[in-house]
């Protein structure tokens, strides 16, 4: 089923609409094993919806999604769950469980789903926190006591604690100051180095240059353009150029006045 050259994620004909609003429209995308793909696109173009379809949080209307060669949309539930267990996710706002301590968040899956005992899990959580640059003292704090940047780091630690082979990042740097954003980018680079596959969505070009091997741009519910990260400064495409340069004038319609 899954060989070295099957893509880690393979999406074909993915469509999703909410009511009459078409968000994803027959979208195709491959994420190569061991590589870091960054999907860019304006706010509200369906980037989060795309990731949530892959993770099974949102059910797509049509299309197939394969994780390591396993069809997770129409395949058997058990097989799909097993394929998805290979995935970790850092949510846009961190999505930490606010009734649990930091270490319990990080070790959540180990304790709740894999039955590891709490002492062992706590040790492992502290080690994982160290990997994202957090001191052992953080382990016993509550999420509400942390700054936004620290919450993102804890979210990152939680996502990698069970060593997933595929990891998703939903706008990892949005809402952070430039220095903290750089730290997060660096951490993402570190944890995805090697054989791990990463799919990141963002509209932060700094982030793109830092963590992408390949870039894809989503527009009108489809992958409008994709190419290696080196190509984004000369993409031969007016939409990508407009987005990368951040111009309000160009082929992407932007409403500035209220009419």
């Amino acid at each position: 089923m899954s060989t070295a050259d099957t893509p880690a994620i393979r999406i074909r004909g993915l469509s999703k609409r909410f009511g009459s609003k078409v968000v994803l429209d027959n979208l195709d995308l491959d994420v190569d094993r061991g590589r870091s793909l960054v999907v860019i696109g304006a706010s509200g173009t369906g980037k989060s919806v795309l990731i949530k379809c892959i993770l099974g949080i949102i059910e797509p209307d049509a299309g197939t999604i394969e994780i390591n060669g396993v069809d997770v949309v129409r395949g058997r539930r058990r097989a799909a769950a097993k394929a998805r267990a290979e995935c970790g996710m850092l949510f846009q706002g961190g999505a930490l469980f606010d009734s649990l301590k930091v270490w319990e968040n990080v070790a959540f899956r180990l304790v709740q789903a894999e039955g590891m005992n709490r002492r062992e899990a706590r040790e492992l959580a502290i080690q994982t926190l160290a990997r994202v640059g957090l001191k052992p003292e953080t382990a016993d704090l509550m999420p509400a006591e942390l700054s936004g940047g620290m919450q993102k780091r804890v979210g990152l630690a939680r996502a990698i604690a069970s060593e997933p082979s595929i990891i998703f990042f939903d706008e990892p740097t949005t809402g952070l100051d430039p220095i903290m954003a750089d730290v997060i980018n660096q951490l993402i680079r570190n944890v995805t180095a090697g054989q791990r596959t990463a799919l990141t969505i963002t509209h932060d070009m700094q982030s793109v240059r830092h963590i992408a091997d390949k870039v894809a741009m989503i527009y009108n519910g489809k992958i409008h353009w994709s190419g290696p990260v080196e190509a984004i400064d000369d993409p031969q495409d007016a939409h990508v150029e407009q987005f990368v340069q951040g111009h309000s004038e160009g082929p992407i319609p932007v409403q500035i006045t209220a009419d």
């Binding site: 993770l55 769950a81 846009q92 999505a95 469980f97 899956r109 709740q112």
Partner: peptide, 16 residues
């Protein structure tokens, strides 16, 4: 609040 802050989504990504 858990729904809005994606904590419920996070649960399922942690195989719970």
């Amino acid at each position: 609040t858990m729904r809005v802050t994606e904590q419920i989504d996070a649960l399922s990504t942690l195989t719970t």
